[in-house]
Computed example of a mutant assay.
Amino acid sequence: MMDNLFADRVKGLKGSAIREIFKLIQQPDVISFAGGLPAPEMFPAKELAEIAQEVLLNNGTTALQYSVTEGYGPLKEIVKQRMDKAGIGKKEDDIAIMSGGQQGIDLTAKVFLNEGDGIICENPSFIGALNAFRAYNAKLFPVTLENDGMCIEQVENILKANNHVKLIYTIPTFQNPAGITMSLEKRQKLLEMASKHNIYIIEDNPYGDLRFKGQDVPTIKSMDQDGRVIYVGSFSKILSPGLRLGWIVARSDILQKVIIVKQVNDVHTNIFAQVLATQYLLKYCIDEHIKKIRALYGKKCGFMLECMDKYFPDYCEYTRPEGGLFIWCTLPDRYDSVEIMKQSVQHKVAFVPGNTFMADMEKPCSSFRLNYSTMTEEKIEQGIKTLGEVLKSIDN
């Protein structure tokens, strides 16, 4: 058979269940809490349209030509200024612009992971990252996600028992899918363990700017004194996901390896998108734009939680995030969120079942993820009420 010709590293890969759900929720009457999409009303479409015309008329040669792999210089400088303000990056570090944060994760994995190498990750975690690691035939070491971040004792035990672990992957701030934030103490301990065991940390931070409640916690990278942390950032949640713009901050020698594999991957990040974003960031105040996004998400999250408190059964537990895009719900172990999702979709409400985010996707999972950023308050209440009725009916 022809599929015998597929490489071993892709034979076990499965498409993202989230992408499959997207096909279903294109129906206009479906209320979707499934995607990780930013609110479309926050896209600066009018401003970008005006800038696009100016760029093509006045700077078309640069915007439409091949460019350097490291990224458009003016955009790199803007990102560097923002990172410096947050205390991210030392003199040994450099920045490269990626085709979204996802590419930064994938290429870092490609640089570090041989077949069979280990990577520690939160359980649950971001499906895009997990599939990137699976694509390189890495061994996933899942660690329980607690209310204040991954279980540090489990991390330590894994490192003591396995000498082939190379990376720790974490989303410490408003984690996807759980919405929780890792404590400062755990961030410090994680960094200490990375140094002790001579491994590296991928700190994925696409949601860090979206805090609408509570106090900021320093990034792991801001505490990194010896280049142990590869920091991945993104414009997807604060400007536009369709532009596909992200970045990496890492030690220069590591970044040079990433740049080499990026040259093979896509030559360079879309230069038109880079120039477009640069001009927007020079012309408008991105921090004022982010404040508006925070206010909207804080209102929507608070409203969804109120509705869940009102309509969900008592046996359903859920996180109360201080930022980001997601609420993580957990039912007693006897329930399977895939089966509940099937029933929910019949009632025109969609969400993502929890097994999608687990290292072992085949094992039944009683948890599921809700997104609050895209639906109106009217649809949030309607959808949560309907989902609550589905949850209450499953024992009847």
Rank of each mutant, 00 (worst) to 15 (best):
Q103R: 13
R19E: 14
N131Y: 02
F6C: 07
K110Q: 15
A49Q: 12
P241Y: 09
K299W: 01
F303R: 06
K213N: 13
I220A: 01
R251C: 03
K196T: 11
D8G: 07
G101F: 05
E146Q: 14
N137A: 12
Y315G: 00
Y284Q: 10
Q65C: 13
T374P: 00
V79Q: 04
L107I: 14
K342Y: 08
A132R: 01
T173D: 12
L113E: 08
I293P: 02
F272C: 03
Q26S: 14
T108Y: 04
M150Q: 04
D148Y: 08
R244W: 09
L145F: 10
N58R: 14
I21L: 13
N176I: 15
E317Q: 15
P364T: 10
S234Q: 09
P313K: 06
Q274N: 10
M304H: 07
I199H: 06
G242V: 01
E362Q: 13
R369W: 00
L37W: 10
P124N: 07
V111D: 12
M98P: 00
A17S: 13
Y318N: 04
G233P: 07
T319H: 04
E317F: 13
Q27T: 10
L282R: 15
K291M: 13
Q175N: 15
A161T: 07
A129T: 09
I199F: 03
E92N: 13
N157C: 03
A277W: 05
D253L: 06
V111S: 11
G101D: 04
Y318W: 11
G12F: 10
F133A: 12
P177Q: 01
V390F: 04
Y297C: 05
L57I: 13
Y315D: 14
E362R: 12
S337G: 06
A49K: 12
I88P: 03
T356L: 14
K76G: 05
C121F: 01
G15F: 15
S373R: 02
S222P: 00
V258S: 03
K342T: 12
A295Y: 08
Q65G: 13
D309I: 09
N131C: 05
E185N: 13
R134I: 04
D333W: 03
E362V: 00
Q175H: 15
L325C: 08
